[in-house]
Amino acid sequence: MDSIRSAFARQGFVRASDGRILGGVCAGVGRRFGIKPGLSRVIFVVLLMVLPGSQLLVYPLLWFLMPDEASIEIAAPGTPEGDVGA
């Protein structure tokens, strides 16, 4: 499981600690793609209307798989978790 979270973190997919409303998933995905958290939430809702139900499965899965931004900052340099942002 740690390897999956490390892979997400290397790609820049981390749950944001600022701008979060529920789990920080939309804010983190928005940050990854360079858009504001509000816009990423609007896109999420629009996709939910176009493809009903799929996001209700994807959001909890991303919440579980994406590491929290605070847990990555706490990790010491030289550890696999600490080298993620390097």
Rank of each mutant, 00 (worst) to 15 (best):
Q11H: 08
G78R: 06
R32M: 07
I74D: 13
V29N: 03
P80E: 13
V45K: 11
S17T: 12
I43V: 15
L57N: 12
A27S: 15
V46G: 08
L62S: 03
Q11M: 12
L61A: 10
R41N: 09
T79C: 04
I72N: 04
A76G: 09
V46D: 06
G82F: 04
P52C: 06
C26G: 03
D68Q: 07
A16C: 12
R15T: 01
G78C: 04
S54Q: 12
P77R: 10
P60C: 00
L56C: 09
P37E: 12
P77I: 02
S6H: 15
V14M: 10
F13H: 06
A75I: 05
V58K: 14
Q55T: 13
G12D: 12
A27W: 01
V45F: 14
L61K: 05
V50P: 08
V46F: 13
R5M: 11
D83T: 05
M66Q: 02
V42Y: 01
V84F: 02
D18G: 09
E69G: 07
V45Y: 13
F33I: 13
G34K: 06
E69Y: 07
L62N: 01
D68G: 10
R41G: 11
R31C: 01
Q55Y: 12
P37W: 02
V45L: 09
E73A: 15
F64D: 02
D83M: 01
I72E: 01
M49Y: 09
I74V: 13
S71L: 03
G38N: 05
D68W: 08
G38T: 10
W63H: 11
R5I: 00
G53Y: 05
G78A: 12
P52D: 06
A7C: 04
G82M: 06
G53K: 07
L22I: 11
R32I: 00
G23I: 01
E73G: 05
T79N: 07
M49H: 00
A27P: 04
G30V: 08
R31A: 15
F8M: 14
Y59W: 10
L39T: 14
V50Y: 11
A75M: 06
G34V: 05
I72Y: 03
V14P: 02
S71H: 12
G34I: 03
P52H: 03
A75C: 07
P77T: 13
P80L: 00
L51A: 13
A9M: 04
R5W: 00
S17D: 14
I21N: 07
M49W: 09
M66Y: 01
D83K: 02
R31V: 00
R15N: 02
L65R: 04
P80H: 04
L61W: 15
L22S: 06
F8C: 15
A7H: 14
W63G: 07
M66I: 00
I72G: 04
P37S: 13
W63A: 11
P60L: 07
V46Y: 03
G24Q: 07
I21S: 06
G38H: 04
I21E: 08
L48N: 14
G30D: 01
R10I: 03
P80N: 06
F44H: 11
G19M: 06
R20F: 08
L65C: 14
R20N: 08
F44N: 10
V14A: 09
D68M: 08
A27V: 01
F8I: 02
A9K: 05
G38Q: 13
P52W: 04
P60G: 05
P52G: 03
C26W: 13
A76Y: 07
K36V: 14
Q11Y: 11
M49E: 01
C26S: 13
R41I: 08
M66H: 09
R41F: 05
P37M: 05
